[in-house]
């Protein structure tokens, strides 16, 4: 279980990384935290010719407030930072709540936000959580024919970013540089929960929810997303509509949970049947939406 040979580029800036990625004649992969990529290399399930190490790029490690009062996470922000940053706990408590479910402390020391999103694993927690928060990703590449150092950037909503299992809208010459989230509105409550075989494992199923209640206690807006609920990290738009315009009574929440389970497309694997996953999605949706709503009310 030793990795295959590869060329190694330690990028010190985003431009250096983009420069390396721009040369698509060599199969190049960015190396972020490496907590998913390196096991794949060790099993020789991935055999890239070149790795571009992003760990030396300081500008990607920042946690910032955006112009509209939202949050920008540099791609190389570590899970550990998310977990412990008091600013995040205050502004996006869902991130602080969900991050401890990601693997183990030693993995969170290295694992990054950008790496998790770019990996596009339907079983991972962070993509689902970020979907619930309405996140978008910022993507850069070197401009074709442009001067070295000139970039083309684009922003993609996370809902459009995930195209399939381990498959995203990211092109081989592109780098995910940041994830941005709009500010949370007054009256919002969020929650996350999952069922995993062991603490730190990929979940059998997980649910993240965000609900906004108006002063009359009626739900104005809801977002629910699933871990291991389909081929991609998925936002359950239809199920969320069951909640909108209603007071979050137990009956309404149960209907939402049922809709979520009914419209989910979980896969069967050695750890859980499709029926079991669907059932867990219903149970977890009920629990998580109730908790999110309770958090607004209390």
């Amino acid at each position: 279980m030793k990795p295959p040979p590869f060329d190694y580029v330690a990028a010190a800036t985003v431009d250096e990384a983009l420069e390396a990625l721009a040369d698509t004649s060599v199969e190049t992969r960015p190396l972020a935290g490496g907590q998913s990529l390196v096991p794949m290399l060790n099993f020789r399930l991935a055999v890239p010719e070149r790795l571009v190490d992003l760990n030396g790029i300081d500008e990607l490690s920042r946690i910032e407030e955006t112009e509209d009062g939202g949050l920008r996470l540099g791609a190389m922000v570590r899970h550990r930072q998310l977990e412990h940053d008091p600013f995040i706990a205050r502004r996006m408590p869902l991130l602080s709540e969900a991050t401890p479910f990601i693997a183990h402390p030693q993995i969170r020391s290295r694992g990054t936000v950008g790496g998790s999103v770019a990996h596009a694993d339907p079983a991972a927690e962070l993509p689902a959580v970020l979907l619930t928060l309405g996140a978008r990703v910022r993507i850069a590449r070197r401009s074709l024919g442009g001067e070295p150092g000139s970039r083309v950037e684009r922003t993609v909503g996370l809902g459009e970013f995930f195209l399939g299992p381990f498959f995203s809208a990211l092109e081989p010459d592109e780098l995910l540089t940041a994830i941005e989230m709009p500010p949370s509105a007054p009256g919002e409550g969020t929650a996350f929960d999952e069922v995993a075989r062991r603490r730190g494992d990929y979940a059998l199923a997980g649910v993240a929810a965000r609900v906004r209640l108006n002063s009359g206690g009626v739900c104005d807006e809801a977002a629910i997303s699933l871990v291991n609920g389909g081929a991609t990290p998925c936002l359950m738009r239809e199920a969320a509509r069951t909640l909108v315009g209603q007071e979050p009574t137990p009956e309404v929440i149960e209907a939402t949970a049922a809709a979520c389970a009914a419209t989910s497309e979980p896969a069967a694997d050695m750890h859980a049947s499709e029926a079991y996953r669907r059932h867990l999605i219903q149970v977890l949706t009920r629990r998580v939406v109730s908790r999110a709503a309770d958090r607004v009310l209390t």
Binding site: Y8, G34, Q35, V38, Q106
Partner: peptide, 19 residues
């Protein structure tokens, strides 16, 4: 294989020496 990198625990099997 856990070691500390600048004081933080990391898996040494998931990093390269060059890093």
């Amino acid at each position: 294989c856990t070691v500390q990198l600048d004081g933080e625990p990391v898996r040494a099997c998931l990093m390269f020496a060059v890093q």
